[in-house]
């Protein structure tokens, strides 16, 4: 499909029908499935969709959600209820429509040659990494998944990852599942002894403190590391300059230059 300048579309604005909006755990985590037509074909791991949770002016802005997985003309989002926007989204029902723009952002830069990939997920950060894991599987690239959360309930997608026949390591801060501690502790142990002759690449998504620690560890072992960041986003297309972060190349827009950044570029 082409736009008015006869160029192929990179993103679209559509009305996406909800086919599923299922509570995964105690009104906190939900999986949303939407009919999205062409967007599913355009979507790449690490990109997001920009959703209006209702047609009102509260909340005013669209909300960005990482793409969790795609199917034939459909797309899944995994989200955590953290505020007004996600509270409203959790109330939306099958058969209703959501105004969606996407796919947006740059996505994960996929490795060129043969590498071993380490995925580091903190809490809901697992959402975008699963889409990446599917792509890595398709490309027959070996990878391992580290998932961390506060407690057992915050560990999502463990079984889904296991179905991809990969090692999944879990940590929780309270020790109710997997190792007691932080997911970056697992990374710290893994990187010196990766059990692989291949060069390592790290991809991570999670909270800020996890990002900083992941970046620090990756630097220590001289391993390339890509982080998928989150910010309040207004336009979502790179126009308003509202969602910038500071990098070695100056301010960069999370919505357009990101959300995925090389960890060495980011100035925390």
């Amino acid at each position: 499909m082409k736009n008015m300048l006869n160029c192929y579309y990179h993103m679209l604005q559509i009305k996406a029908e909800i086919t599923e909006n299922t509570e995964l755990f105690a009104q906190t985590y939900y999986q949303l499935s939407l009919k999205v037509g062409e967007i599913s074909r355009l979507a790449k791991p690490g990109q997001f969709v920009h959703l209006r949770v209702n047609q009102k002016t509260v909340p005013l802005l669209r909300r960005p959600f990482s793409i969790h997985s795609v199917g034939e003309k459909n797309l899944q989002i995994l989200y955590k209820v953290i505020g007004k926007g996600t509270e409203i989204l959790a109330q939306r029902k099958k058969g209703e429509f959501l105004d969606m723009i996407g796919p947006s952002g740059n996505g994960y830069k996929l490795p060129d040659g043969k590498v071993k990939v380490v995925l580091v997920a903190g809490g809901i950060g697992v959402a975008s990494l699963y889409f990446l894991a599917e792509e890595l599987t398709r490309r027959s690239l070996p990878f391992v998944v580290l998932i961390g959360g506060k407690s057992r309930e915050d560990i999502l997608c463990r079984d889904k990852f296991k179905k991809l026949n990969v090692d999944v390591m879990v940590s929780t801060e309270d020790g109710t599942s997997g190792r007691k501690g932080l997911v970056t502790d697992l990374l710290q142990e893994l990187l010196p002894t990766p059990h692989s002759q291949l060069p390592i690449v790290v991809y991570a998504c999670g909270p800020t403190e996890m990002f900083k620690e992941t970046a620090r560890i990756a630097r220590k072992y001289a391993v390339p590391c890509y982080l998928s960041l989150e910010k309040i986003i207004a336009c979502g297309v790179g126009a308003c300059q509202g969602c910038v972060i500071n990098t070695k190349d100056g301010y960069q827009r999370v919505c357009k230059d990101g959300p995925v950044f090389d960890s060495e570029q980011i100035i925390w």
Binding site: V58, L61, K231, I233, C240, Q241, G242, N246, G250, Y251
Partner: peptide, 17 residues
Amino acid sequence: VGNPPPRLAETASGLLN
């Protein structure tokens, strides 16, 4: 280059930039 982030905040039916 513009102002230091954060550059956006959402308010009731409003956007602060």
